[in-house]
Computed example of a mutant assay.
Amino acid sequence: MGLSEETHDLYGDNTPAKINRLRTFQLSKFDDPTRATMDEDRSTRDAFVFRIAEMYLIAAEALMELDPPKALYYMNQLRENRALPGKSSQMRINSNDLTVDFILDERARELGGEQLRWFDLKRFNEEKFVERIKAGNPDAAGNVKPWHIVRPIPRTQLDAVFNKDEFKQNEGYAQ
């Protein structure tokens, strides 16, 4: 069964034109200009393990309840550093803007493509996990359940244990 024309349109509420879901987004933040060809798997580019931007985000989140002015300082430092020349004042936020949802949005913008999103969403609670997925991913909105906060245990691991009575599949997934 083919996709209808309507299902080819992806999200698009915040864009002037809808995005065709048959096309994919390309992230170039990991491109390595030193590779001779696209097929070359060797590189001289450093691999990042941890970024200072992530430290600012962690600090802002950790201090949000303990020391809101300091949390705001870290978030504004990060946002001002990302601003286009002459636009840093437009990137500043105030204390009313600094919420868990704002930090999750900022983490999505800053750390996009770095394979951290699921971990970001799951560390709060099942309610926030489901809420954010429903709000940000209409394709998953109808299917996401609170038990998706944990992933299924691979069948090969479950089959390998001797005491199968003690080690069961995570709730919600097929035993």
Rank of each mutant, 00 (worst) to 15 (best):
Y56R: 08
Y56W: 11
Y56E: 11
I58A: 15
I58N: 15
I58K: 13
I58Y: 11
A59M: 06
A60M: 04
E61M: 08
E61A: 08
A62R: 07
A62I: 02
A62Q: 15
A62M: 12
L63T: 12
L63V: 03
M64V: 04
M64I: 02
M64N: 07
M64T: 03
E65Q: 13
L66G: 01
L66D: 09
L66C: 01
D67L: 02
D67F: 08
P68E: 05
P68V: 05
P68D: 09
P68G: 01
P68L: 02
P69R: 06
K70F: 01
A71L: 08
A71Y: 00
A71I: 04
L72P: 06
L72E: 07
L72V: 12
Y73W: 12
Y73E: 11
Y73G: 06
Y73P: 06
Y74S: 01
Q77M: 09
L78D: 15
L78T: 11
L78I: 10
L78Q: 11
E80D: 03
E80N: 05
E80C: 07
E80K: 15
E80V: 07
N81F: 06
A83Q: 09
A83F: 10
L84R: 15
P85A: 07
P85S: 11
P85G: 11
P85L: 03
P85Q: 02
P85D: 08
G86E: 00
G86I: 06
K87Y: 02
K87I: 06
S88L: 00
S88Q: 13
S88M: 06
S89V: 14
S89C: 01
S89P: 01
Q90F: 10
Q90K: 10
Q90C: 04
M91T: 12
M91A: 07
M91S: 00
M91G: 05
M91D: 02
R92Y: 07
R92C: 08
R92N: 09
R92K: 14
R92W: 04
I93A: 05
I93S: 09
I93N: 09
I93L: 14
I93V: 15
N94C: 08
N94D: 12
S95T: 04
S95D: 02
S95F: 05
N96Q: 10
N96P: 03
D97Q: 12
L98I: 09
L98P: 00
L98G: 01
T99A: 13
T99V: 07
T99H: 13
T99N: 09
V100W: 01
D101I: 11
D101Q: 12
D101H: 10
D101F: 02
F102V: 00
I103N: 07
I103E: 04
I103H: 07
I103P: 10
L104T: 04
D105E: 11
A108R: 13
A108W: 08
A108G: 04
R109Q: 09
R109M: 12
R109A: 14
R109W: 03
L111A: 10
L111K: 06
G112L: 11
G112Y: 00
G112T: 03
E114L: 07
E114S: 04
E114A: 09
L116Y: 14
L116N: 13
L116A: 13
